[in-house]
Design a binder for these strands. Structure first.
Lengths: 161, 161
DNA sequence: CTGGATCCAGGCAGATACTG
DNA sequence: CAGTATCTGCCTGGATCCAG
């Protein structure tokens, strides 16, 4: 058995409902690799190796998987030339271009709310209790994940790992 | 040590550039779990256990991680009540609501391009060779991932958002 | 009694090396 | 250059246990 091994390219199916369009969409969007591929392809056709470096440290295996999934969904078209040296170009189909809208939304969101890694954050400290007089224990948003794990603040190993 | 173990909540940092707003955004969006959480929270505050079932088979551990990440980013606010029985509510902050725009874009994309799992797909079979007279090997888009894996076909539970 | 932290084991993702 | 095969590791999910 070759190409259809035993693995789901995108996210794990249990995570969302694949029966609805939205479910499928989430599976696509909810995959960093796919997002990155589409973003790159939005700039025009790319060759396999080009994508490989553009995406950073994605393995060829993973790239192939994602590319194939996108191809099957009709978002990406693969064009292979049986020449020496071999050449394969991937480019977005019109449908795939639509994905650009989603990317755009993400970019806008990023600009508006992620310019700074840690905005004023939740008012957190005190907020009128929703429906009872109990004390809403407000946690000072201890950035546990941010300081000691590389959650979203480290500007270190982005590509040179 | 309790809550900050040793793991990255969202996607692996190597996958994208965390130094740019867009990079951070991709990390958020590129996580199915996070998407699902936000979608659920868009409908209003939820309790921990509610989210747990809404998301399906996400483990409490993973849910806690994501929730905490979103909390630190200021997208989600955690409100715990020291009462008996204990109660914890999570709800989106205004900033978190912004995320709704992204969700909306995804939904629109889903409606437009994912209503049918496998659209006409890439014309694939033949397309005018881009810049050479070699034969573009057109592969019949073998739906390897779609049929034999539960990629896009299994039916499960619904998180009606 | 809920929230969630820990431990264990399994599955998916990534890296490396090889082939056409 | 494109893609595949195999191995390893990390993340994830499940069960269990603890704290408030």
């Amino acid at each position: 058995m070759k190409r259809a091994e035993r693995e789901q390219p995108a996210a794990r199916p249990e995570a969302c409902n694949a029966t609805t369009p939205m479910g499928r969409a989430i599976r696509l969007v909810g995959d960093v690799c796919i997002l990155l591929i589409v973003i790159n392809l939005l700039s025009g056709p790319r060759r396999f190796s080009e994508l490989l470096e553009q995406l950073g440290h994605i393995s060829s295996r993973t790239l192939t998987q994602r590319l194939r999934l996108l191809e099957e969904l009709g978002f990406v078209e693969r064009r292979a030339f049986l020449e020496i040296p071999p050449r394969v170009e991937y480019h977005l189909t019109p449908t795939g271009q639509e994905f650009g809208q989603v990317i755009a939304a993400i970019e806008e969101f990023a600009r508006k709310n992620l310019a700074d890694p840690l905005p004023p954050a939740s008012c957190g400290t005190l907020c009128s209790a929703p429906s009872s007089d109990h004390s809403p224990v407000s946690r000072p948003v201890t950035a546990s994940l941010c300081d000691e794990s590389d959650a979203l603040t480290e500007a270190g190993e982005e590509a040179e790992n």
